[in-house]
């Protein structure tokens, strides 16, 4: 069986980490799939999905780490009017940070439980907010 759901988010910050573990767990539970996989995939190219420990200090470290790797002030090529949008592309740092985090994560479902470590939480990562965002959650199994 394959079940596809969506998580809708309205982010409020330019860069922001949003915990979505609870929503994913609820969707797995509602699916009645007891053995299989859950795939959590963002729909966007300036956002990421990552798994880490939900601590304020780590969120700060990850944000600063990404900002050191991808500073705002560098002369990126992705800074121009895109004719098929009719608007300016000024979000190269969002694309590059998303490139680093990746767009997805996966967890195993076994005997009705999502198998994850106690310290593992699922983050939606906003790198070009605020924005309206969508995360696909596909639950596959039996």
């Amino acid at each position: 069986m394959v079940i596809l759901k969506q998580i809708k988010l309205l982010t409020t910050g330019y860069n922001q980490f949003v915990l979505i573990t609870k929503q994913v767990l609820e969707l797995v539970q509602e699916s009645n799939i007891t053995n299989g996989m859950v795939h959590v995939i963002t729909k966007h190219t300036t956002t990421g999905i990552t798994v880490n420990e939900s601590l304020e200090c780590l969120e700060s470290d990850i944000e600063e780490f990404l900002s050191r790797l991808v500073p705002e002030h560098l002369p990126y090529s992705h800074a121009r009017i895109l004719s098929d949008y009719g608007s300016t592309a000024g979000n190269p740092t969002g694309h590059l940070k998303a490139h680093l985090t990746g767009n997805h994560c996966h967890f195993i479902i076994s005997d009705g439980e999502l198998l994850k470590g106690d310290a593992q939480d699922i983050y939606f990562c906003e790198f070009d907010g605020p924005a309206q965002r969508t995360v696909f959650v596909q639950i596959v199994g039996e």
Binding site: G86, S87, P130
Partner: peptide, 21 residues
């Protein structure tokens, strides 16, 4: 008419979030 594409529509709460940022 405006030649602006792929941007969707924005609820006012999103506009207010943008203003705040």
């Amino acid at each position: 008419v405006l030649n602006i594409h792929k941007n969707g529509t924005a609820p006012l709460v999103h506009i207010f979030n943008q203003m705040k940022c």
